[in-house]
Nucleic acid binder design. Structure first.
Lengths: 211, 211
DNA sequence: TAATTTGTTCTCTATTTGTTCTCATGTTAT
DNA sequence: ATAACATGAGAACAAATAGAGAACAAATTA
C-alpha cells in the first residue's frame, strides 16, 4: 500500500491532505506551483501523474477543475486512527486463492459485528455457505486467527493454494471442511494440509446495489 | 453527488445558496449578472444551463423570473453532515407489533448498507425470511418509506396491529405478503389492510455473541 | 396593441489549464 | 564511473473555460 511515493510526491500529497478544506475550489496546477514553490507546471504535473497512478488523485482528463483527492485518499486519513473501520481486502471463492483487491478500502463496521482482535473483510463469491445464510455477494467479517474450535466457520487455506469458507471439524488425524450446502460434500484433509487464516465473526448484505 | 462543477458554476451556485432568502422574487438573469459582475446575460446563461443539467436549479421553461434552486439542491446542504450511525429501534417478529426497545442505541453502519434516505435498524425474531438468508437474531436496515415496488422486502403493518417482514406483491384489489420459507403460506389482504412502514436495504449478522 | 423585459441561442474572442515535450542538474545505487 | 532515477525549468499545444455582444421569441407590462 502506497509503496513507491517519491519524497516530493509525498510532500505534495501531504500538502493536499492537510489543506483540502482550505481551498474554496480545488487548486489548479498553477496555484499548487505557488504553494510548492515551483515555477513550472510541467514539473508539478509529473508528480501529479504519479499520484494519479497510485489512485490518490482524481484523473481530470484535461478537464480544468483542479487537483482533487480521490475518495480512497480521503479514507486514508479518516481510517488511519479510527478503530471502527475495517479493511476490505478481497474476494473469497471456494477453491481459489483469495483474490486481493488492488486498492484496499475501509468500511465502518458496528461494534457488534467484530471482536477485540484484528479483523478484515472479504466479499463472498459462490454459494457454498448458502444454507448458513451467506450468499454470493455478501461481505464477511473475519477475525485474523490461526486456530479454531470445531464447528466454527473459518477461512481455510488448503495445500497453500486454495482458500475457502467452511465449517471446520478437527480430529487428531483428519480435518473436515464442511460446506453448508446439501448439494456439496464435506472434504477431508490431513491436518497439515489445512491452514486456518481466520474465523467468521460477522456477515453483511446489501439489498440495494451491486457494490 | 454534485460531482464536478466549474469554478464559475460553483461560485454562482454558492451565491444562490447563500442569498436565496434575500430575493423577494427569484432573480432574473440580468440581476444575477450584476451580482456576479458580468455584462452579458448569454454568458451567465451557459453557466445556468450547466447547473440545470446537474439538477441544482429549476429550469424556468421560458417563464420569466425563474432562477430557483431545486429541492435536491436544498437537501444537499441539510444532509451535508451525514453521519454513519443509525438508530436501533426494536424487534420485529412476524405477527406481532414491533417491540420497541426502551433505550434507543445507535450502530455505526457502513455506507454500502444504507441509502440516502432515513433508515433505522430492527432485530429479527423468527424464521419467516429464512430462505432469503435472514435469520433469527439478524439485524435488518430499513429505509423509512410508505410505498414499495413489487418484489421488495418490506416492513408491513397489518390491520394496524401486526408487523412483519415479507416480500410484497401489490395488485389493484389485493396485496400479498410472501414469506421466504416454504413451510409458510403467502398471506392475502385487501390493500387498505396493509401499511408499508419501510423497505429492507441491508442485513447484518454476528457470529460471536448474543447481543 | 405596442413596448419592454426576459430567457435562449448563436458567433466570436481571449484566457486559463492540463498535458506532453525536451533539456539540464543533481542524487543514489550498483 | 556509469546507469538509473528524481527533480526542475521552460516551450509548445489542445482543450476547457469564460465573457461580450447580437439576434430572436416568448412572456410580461404598459
Amino acid at each position: 500500500m502506497m509503496k513507491s511515493l517519491t519524497r516530493k510526491q509525498q510532500e505534495i500529497f501531504d500538502f493536499l491532505l492537510q489543506n483540502q478544506d482550505k481551498f474554496p475550489h480545488p487548486p489548479t496546477l498553477e496555484e499548487l506551483c505557488v504553494c510548492m514553490s515551483l515555477k513550472s507546471r510541467g514539473s508539478l504535473h509529473t508528480h501529479i501523474k504519479a499520484l494519479i497512478k497510485e489512485n490518490l488523485i482524481e484523473a481530470p482528463e484535461r478537464k480544468q477543475r483542479g487537483i482533487r483527492l480521490t475518495e480512497y485518499a480521503k479514507e486514508m486519513i479518516n481510517h488511519s486512527d479510527d478503530q471502527s473501520s475495517l479493511p476490505f481486502v478481497g474476494f473469497i471463492a471456494a477453491g481459489k486463492p483469495i483474490e486481493a483487491v488492488e486498492n484496499i478500502t475501509y468500511m465502518t463496521i458496528p461494534e457488534q459485528l467484530k471482536t477485540q482482535k484484528p479483523c478484515y473483510i472479504l466479499k463472498v463469491k459462490g454459494d457454498s455457505m448458502l444454507e448458513q445464510g451467506i450468499y454470493d455477494g455478501d461481505w464477511v467479517i473475519i477475525e485474523q486467527r490461526s486456530y479454531a474450535r470445531n464447528g466454527e466457520i473459518v477461512v481455510a487455506l488448503i495445500n497453500k493454494a486454495e482458500a475457502t469458507l467452511k465449517f471446520i471439524e478437527q480430529y487428531p488425524h483428519e480435518t473436515l471442511l464442511i460446506p453448508a450446502n446439501s448439494t456439496m460434500e464435506a472434504m477431508r484433509y490431513k491436518p497439515e494440509q489445512v491452514e486456518i487464516q481466520g474465523v467468521l465473526v460477522g456477515q453483511m448484505r446489501s439489498y440495494t446495489k451491486n457494490h
